[in-house]
Amino acid sequence: MPDEKPLDSLVFLGRKKGLSQVDLAAKLNISQGHLSKLINGLHEPGAKLRRRIDELAQELAGLDSSWLRAVQRAAQQSSDFRDAVSALLRIMHSNASADST
Rank of each mutant, 00 (worst) to 15 (best):
residue 70 A to D: 03
residue 82 R to I: 05
residue 90 R to Q: 13
residue 24 L to P: 11
residue 77 Q to D: 15
residue 5 K to R: 14
residue 30 I to G: 07
residue 45 P to W: 09
residue 47 A to L: 07
residue 47 A to R: 01
residue 54 D to A: 04
residue 33 G to A: 13
residue 37 K to V: 06
residue 82 R to M: 05
residue 15 R to A: 12
residue 32 Q to W: 07
residue 88 L to F: 03
residue 24 L to K: 05
residue 76 Q to G: 13
residue 99 D to E: 04
residue 68 L to G: 09
residue 76 Q to M: 12
residue 44 E to Q: 07
residue 34 H to P: 05
residue 44 E to P: 04
residue 40 N to P: 07
residue 34 H to Y: 12
residue 27 K to P: 13
residue 81 F to V: 14
residue 2 P to W: 00
residue 28 L to G: 02
residue 70 A to W: 04
residue 6 P to G: 02
residue 44 E to R: 09
residue 59 E to L: 01
residue 74 A to N: 10
residue 26 A to L: 00
residue 56 L to A: 01
residue 77 Q to A: 15
residue 43 H to V: 04
residue 3 D to V: 06
residue 80 D to Q: 14
residue 18 G to Q: 03
residue 4 E to C: 03
residue 54 D to N: 12
residue 36 S to L: 00
residue 10 L to I: 02
residue 27 K to D: 15
residue 47 A to Q: 06
residue 81 F to K: 08
residue 75 A to E: 03
residue 82 R to L: 09
residue 27 K to L: 14
residue 19 L to C: 10
residue 43 H to S: 03
residue 1 M to V: 09
residue 63 L to I: 00
residue 99 D to L: 02
residue 21 Q to L: 07
residue 17 K to A: 15
residue 20 S to V: 08
residue 58 Q to K: 04
residue 53 I to H: 03
residue 74 A to E: 10
residue 3 D to K: 11
residue 6 P to M: 02
residue 72 Q to S: 13
residue 46 G to F: 00
residue 49 L to Y: 05
residue 56 L to Y: 06
residue 38 L to W: 08
residue 89 L to N: 10
